[in-house]
Amino acid sequence: MPEAGAFITEEMIQASIAKKGPKQYTIWVDLEYCVGCNACTMACKAENNTPVGVDYNRVIEVEVGEFKDPAEKPGVRVYFVPMPCMHCGKPACMAACPVGAITKRKEDGVVLINKDKCIGCRYCAWACPYGHPQFNAEAKVMEKCTLCVHRLEKGLKPACVDTCIARTRFFGEVNDLTKLIREKRAERVSLGFIGGKTATDPSVLYTK
């Protein structure tokens, strides 16, 4: 098993070690700065070499508000919401898998599918509240975002984080990221988890 390595600053690691309990590495996305360029989607596709129809990261566009009165300022805007795996604290996919192919790693909290065990039944996709796991029709197994574990082992950040042109994605231990959010975005602290802090305890952080 790889050790949680030096892929973030030394102080951050020291701070994490000082904290009790298992670690959870995750991504913070600041929706305010996301321009919906899909560079993360492409970087992910290139890095993980996923087939057509399987994307570990998708950016979903949502329009909010209503344009009521032409005389007034239009109260509408578009959000671009990147959707990687939430690497939940209590993964619904793991609980649903009939053969125990899904595990959550203790050392970094990454939820992974063991492709040697997976029988491609898609129970994880049924169970996931974010509809994340996808079926690879060629290999007949389910696939999902791995938080680029192969890069983490080399001390690199996930491809989507490294490539982000708007620098709106951050990677690190969840407690460090929360601190970072307080420092960088003190004026806007509407810290949110997608879909709220639900029963599955998602780890990816969003701010808007």
């Binding site: 919401v81 996931c128 509240p129 509809g131 949110g192 879909g195 709220g196």
Partner: peptide, 19 residues
């Protein structure tokens, strides 16, 4: 039905986030 339901769940989660 899975793909339909998956899309519905994804949108529900996003609506909950940005509301």
């Amino acid at each position: 039905p899975l793909c339909i339901d998956r899309h519905r769940r994804q949108m529900a989660a996003i609506q909950n986030l940005i509301k």
